[in-house]
Amino acid sequence: MATRQAFIDLIAPIAVKLRLEGSPIYPSVRIAQAILETGGSVNAWNNLVGYKVGRGVLTPYWQGAHVSTITWEVIDGTRQDNVPGDFRAYPTLEAGFRDQDLLFGSSRYAGVRSADSPSEQALALSNSGYATDPAYAAELMAIIQTNQLTQYDEEVASMLEKLQEQIEALQNKVAALEGRMALDTIPDWAEAAVNAAIQAGLIDSPQNGSYDFYRLLTVLHRKGIV
Rank of each mutant, 00 (worst) to 15 (best):
S106L: 05
A12L: 00
A169F: 08
H66W: 05
A135K: 11
A169D: 05
E21H: 10
V42A: 08
E191F: 05
P13D: 09
E154S: 02
E37S: 04
M141D: 11
V226D: 04
N43D: 13
D184F: 09
S23M: 10
D153E: 02
R30H: 03
E161A: 10
G129V: 14
E191W: 06
T59E: 06
A2I: 11
E139T: 13
G50Q: 08
I14T: 06
A95Q: 09
L125T: 03
Q148C: 03
T92W: 08
F213E: 07
V226A: 08
H221P: 01
S117G: 09
D86F: 11
R215H: 08
A142Q: 14
M181V: 07
L18A: 15
Y51I: 14
A142M: 15
A200C: 05
R108P: 01
V49D: 09
S41Y: 08
A135P: 02
H221I: 08
K223D: 03
S126D: 06
Q121G: 01
Y130N: 08
M181F: 10
I225G: 04
D204R: 12
G22K: 09
Y152V: 00
V194K: 02
A192I: 11
L102A: 06
L163G: 04
L36I: 05
Q148P: 01
T150P: 00
A115Q: 00
Q5A: 12
V174W: 09
I167P: 00
R88L: 14
V219Y: 03
R180T: 01
V42P: 01
E155V: 00
